[in-house]
């Protein structure tokens, strides 16, 4: 039964990889990679929620006959992807600023806030 739900299994695996990267890694760039992998898992989950068996893309231009997949999850995934790009750009800028200020992006060095 699980093998018919292969996209959801992929969602679970990607979520675990992303969470493990965020929690266990010490490098800021690797943490941001984990955040991006987690975003991909969420996007894959949204798109696969809207899939119908044997469905075609919801576009009527020269469309073949058949059931169409749900359009709203795809539109929300588009929103999610764009916001992910914006967040990633801001995170990378923070990484550059931290690297300029501290000379390192290992989070073990960034302890000045604790003093």
């Amino acid at each position: 039964m699980v093998f018919f739900n292969l996209p959801y299994v992929a969602v679970v695996v990607l979520t675990l990889i992303g969470l493990a990267t965020i929690v266990l890694k010490r490098n800021l760039i690797k943490i941001f990679l984990g955040i991006t992998i987690l975003e991909s898992a969420v996007n894959l989950f949204l798109v696969s929620l809207g899939y119908r068996e044997g469905g075609i893309a919801p576009i009527y231009t020269n469309a073949p006959e058949g059931l169409m997949v749900l359009p709203t999850p795809q539109a929300l995934t588009l929103t999610s992807i764009v916001i992910g790009v914006a967040t990633t750009a801001l995170l990378l800028s923070f990484a550059i600023i931290i690297w300029k200020k501290y000379g390192s992006i290992e989070i073990g060095f960034l302890r000045r806030l604790k003093e």
Partner: peptide, 9 residues
């Protein structure tokens, strides 16, 4: 993956 069924929203 145990509860949801893929391809059947």
């Amino acid at each position: 993956p145990l509860l949801l069924s893929f391809g059947n929203p």
